[in-house]
Design a protein around this nucleic acid. Structure first.
Lengths: 203, 203
DNA sequence: ATTATAAGCTAATTCTAATTAGCTGTCAAG
DNA sequence: CTTGACAGCTAATTAGAATTAGCTTATAAT
């Protein structure tokens, strides 16, 4: 209903499929159900629409970041809870992470758009790295450190473990992003990965 | 020199930086050192230039694939050589793979262009997956299987090991693709990853 | 009721980039 | 020599997409 919002939504969808340069304002308008010139009642240019999407990304990212930070602290505070995380719980966590990234509508479009535009914009490059490298690694490093301290896992470098846990999830996700029909295969591999990871690192 | 070739070269460079839709024929011409209309003496349209690049990619990929297949067979034939691969050799191999992917000029542009265009073209999507998932995993699975059979490594699922070995390399590479200044950091992490991988899996 | 504003439309207009026309100089084959 | 085709150029032309102008309608505040 809120046209202004819907424009961003449609534009993000299109940008995430074809990239900014291959999307025409007419297509955005069509998706919204209005004519191209009407867009200009809401945004002063195509670039302006793109900027508004970026702004929304920044906001969501900041919210997300602070939420995750809190969760991170919660982990540390409620550490007793994680005294002995079971393999099945680990599998669930990995698959949860994977499925969220892969299916959350906004997350997914956001990622594809970043994928396409990352080389033409330093800010986007940084946003991408934060969201799909720095933050997940930081978060999981903390979690694994905890498990190590509690004697559940071998005393190896937690940041490397985090990388070895996360990178396969990420790689499988990129495969599914471009070939969605491979999701079943990816999930099977993913489960084997996590069980093997656990087998190798558990104490 | 061969203008026709140079056009492809410049075009690939530009496409890999901005994507097809954001590159103008005038820019390609400028890079080549001629005026835009002269391009049409060599290719009948911008799309045609893109197609020629794809064709070149296909050719190189096929050559590469058959080369690797041979190498793969060589590995199996000369398996005695790998009786006890040292950790340092493994590190060298991983860093070699990483550095080749990251610095080989053609490989790098090729990958960035695929990255940008993957969602708008199924063929490119498949090419990408082959080159950065299917093939490396297949190749390394074979290698690890060998090491397992020879008793150098623990008897775990070789394809999962390959994933756990390769995915971090791939992830670090994507980080460097968008933030080249992080290469030193990436190499340090990479080395730690491989040494830890070896420590965990060696028999 | 009146009016101001918001949000849509059609029909220009402008801008930009791709492509075509048509000319020119070079150079190798005859 | 001279001829033809190749590869470049400048100057149009075309194509198509972004944006603006200006009109219309609905609605909400005065």
């Amino acid at each position: 209903m809120d046209t202004k919002k819907k424009i961003l939504d449609v534009a993000l969808t299109l940008f995430s499929e074809k990239g900014y340069g291959n999307v025409y304002v007419g297509q955005i308008a069509e998706g919204v159900g209005i004519k191209a010139p009407s867009l200009y009642k809401h945004y002063k240019s195509k670039k302006d629409i793109f900027e508004a999407i970026l702004e929304e990304m920044r906001n969501r990212y900041n919210k997300e970041a602070s939420r995750l930070n809190m969760t991170g602290n919660d982990f540390l505070i409620d550490s007793k809870l994680y005294n002995n995380i079971s393999e099945d719980e680990l599998v669930k966590m990995g698959i949860g992470l994977f499925s969220f990234f892969l299916h959350d509508e906004y997350e997914c479009k956001f990622r594809k758009m970043l994928t396409i535009e990352q080389f033409s914009n330093e800010e986007l490059a940084e946003l991408f790295s934060n969201q799909y490298f720095n933050e997940p690694i930081k978060y999981q490093t903390g979690l694994l450190q905890l498990l190590i301290m509690q004697g559940c896992m071998k005393n190896e470098d937690a940041s490397v473990m985090a990388l070895q846990f996360f990178a396969p999830i990420y790689l499988l996700m990129t495969v599914c992003d471009r070939e969605p029909q491979r999701e079943v295969e990816a999930l099977q591999i993913l489960e084997k990965h996590i069980r093997q990871f656990n087998r190798m690192y558990k104490e």
